[in-house]
């Protein structure tokens, strides 16, 4: 028994403190927006140039000049601001955002992140803002399944996919457990119908008990 992505998104949202400025990466992390508290407790950043991003517009109300980093139509909340790309990435690189939530192919036990390139021969590389997001917030959270489709763990000793960032991930939310990456090692913060022994057997990594 493991958590659904929706349930996991709710748990990530639970852990984001009110008052935070947050960037939700493309894909699964966008689900987190559905579970954030209502009102203006959390301000969303989209790296193409807006703070105060609101939900998708009603059908027929889409504005092609107003989109998110996934190039999907969004809305601007009261209090929103627009800025150019260099400002937007300075905001991230400069450590002004509180939390960034990203998907991943793999995360290493030291917090290395691989999420931009499959490394497959002939694949067209495309990085976008992935490497900026990886280092672009006070806390970088990853949301991913603990295992890939073939059952191989995605939390690993060393990433085999090309790296997006080095030692940049602070916490990993998976369908089986939540891990903190600390200077002392990998800390199991929370489990979902999974024992520590099962995690040790699956990951073959040194795990430190519940924080």
């Amino acid at each position: 028994m493991s958590l659904s992505r929706e349930d996991l998104a709710a748990i990530v949202a639970r852990d984001i403190r009110e008052g935070s400025y947050v960037n939700l990466g493309i894909g699964i992390p966008t689900l987190v927006a559905n579970y954030l508290p209502p009102g203006d407790a959390i301000i969303l950043h989209t790296e193409n140039g807006m703070l105060g991003m609101g939900p998708s517009p009603a059908e027929g109300q889409e504005d092609p000049d107003l989109m998110n980093a996934g190039k999907l139509p969004v809305t601007a909340r009261p209090g929103a601001s627009y800025f150019h790309h260099a400002d937007s990435f300075a905001m991230m690189r400069g450590g002004h955002l509180d939390v960034c939530v990203l998907g991943a192919f793999q995360v290493s036990e030291r917090g290395d992140l691989a999420n931009w390139h499959s490394g497959a021969p002939g694949a067209i590389p495309a990085v976008g803002g992935a490497m900026d997001l990886a280092i672009g917030a006070k806390q970088v959270f990853v949301m991913m399944d603990l295992q890939d489709r073939d059952g191989r763990p995605k939390l690993v000793a060393d990433c085999s996919y090309p790296l997006t960032g080095v030692a940049c991930v602070d916490r990993v939310y998976t369908d089986r457990a939540v891990f903190d990456i600390t200077l002392d090692g990998l800390v199991v913060r929370e489990t979902f119908d999974t024992t520590h022994d099962e995690l040790r057997e699956l990951l073959a990594l040194d795990l430190i008990g519940i924080l």
């Binding site: 790309h85 260099a86 990435f89 991230m92 690189r93 990085v127 803002g129 490497m131």
Partner: peptide, 20 residues
Amino acid sequence: YAAGLIELELVPQGNLAERI
């Protein structure tokens, strides 16, 4: 790109913006 008819220089988005 597949046909080798265009050269690509790939730059992370924030580095692209800051270089500009």
